[in-house]
């Protein structure tokens, strides 16, 4: 006996109930359960769909789908990190390298101005405010998607989350360290200023890449990662 479309939909719902929220992970598990249920029915054709499904699910062990979710998350984080690196590297090759050098010298010159730490705090505050606004809009859109039960891919969520996470944690940390260490940058020796300017430049690029570049290219990145993306989103 073969599974019907209703059975397949039931299996998607079943994985969601067992904490698998992403379509890519669900799809693989649904196919696995479906194959196993069909196999179980060959041996025991009178078993109900629900009983066969539960029998199959038990084979995943006491943690259910947890190990699978965890491994998938690790794999996707690694993939996301490689994507980040790919885009950050662009800023250290021509022609973007010129902009990077410009940012570096801009920060280096700013650090030499007396009371530059106050300018930095001011700039960070403005940046945090803007980020909060974007973040709020983003979370709202994500929530709406989840409510509509739209098919959300794991990488899609990582792209959205990292945008919020890296930016807010990064900015708040820089803000606090500038605020509490009370270092007067203009009094530091030049090799320290070069180091601080270089690190800040890399951070700014990383913020820009995770917050704007990657989200704007998310469709292409998702298509590149998931062969099924085109099929299910009809793009």
């Amino acid at each position: 006996m073969k599974l019907t479309q209703t059975h397949i939909e039931n299996l998607y719902e079943f994985t969601r109930k067992h904490f698998v929220y992403h379509y890519d992970v669900q799809t693989e598990l649904v196919d696995h359960l479906a194959n196993d249920i069909e196999e179980i029915w060959l041996e025991n054709p009178h078993l109900s769909f629900e009983d066969a499904r539960d029998k199959s699910f038990k084979k995943f062990g006491i943690f259910g789908f947890m190990d699978v979710i965890e491994a998938k998350q690790k794999q996707m984080n690694k993939r996301y990190w490689n994507i980040q690196l790919r885009f950050v590297k662009e800023w250290f090759t021509m022609p973007k390298l010129l902009t990077t050098i410009l940012i570096f010298f801009g920060i280096y010159s700013l650090l030499q101005i007396k009371y530059s730490e106050f300018y930095i705090i001011g700039a960070l505050l403005i940046a945090v405010l803007f980020e909060m606004m974007y973040l709020y809009k983003d979370r709202k859109a994500q929530k709406q998607k989840a409510e509509k039960k739209e098919k959300i891919f794991l990488l899609e969520e990582i792209i959205g989350q990292t945008k919020g996470g890296v930016v807010s944690i990064g900015f708040v940390n820089i803000f606090n360290s500038v605020r509490f260490t009370k270092i007067e940058f203009s009094s530091l020796e030049s090799h320290w200023l070069i180091l601080i300017a270089f690190c800040t430049t890399v951070l700014i690029i990383l913020f820009y890449v995770t917050s704007y570049v990657i989200p704007s290219k998310s469709k292409e990145l998702l298509q590149e990662t998931y062969p099924e993306y085109k099929m299910v989103k009809n793009v």
């Binding site: 995943f60 062990g61 699978v68 993939r79």
Partner: peptide, 23 residues
């Protein structure tokens, strides 16, 4: 091979660039 061990192993191999996927 248990299901709980197979998929994590497949995902690890995919992350390491040893496997490619097709749907």
């Amino acid at each position: 091979i248990t299901e709980g061990a197979l998929y994590p192993a497949l995902h690890k191999l995919e992350a390491d660039g040893l496997l490619d996927v097709e749907v």
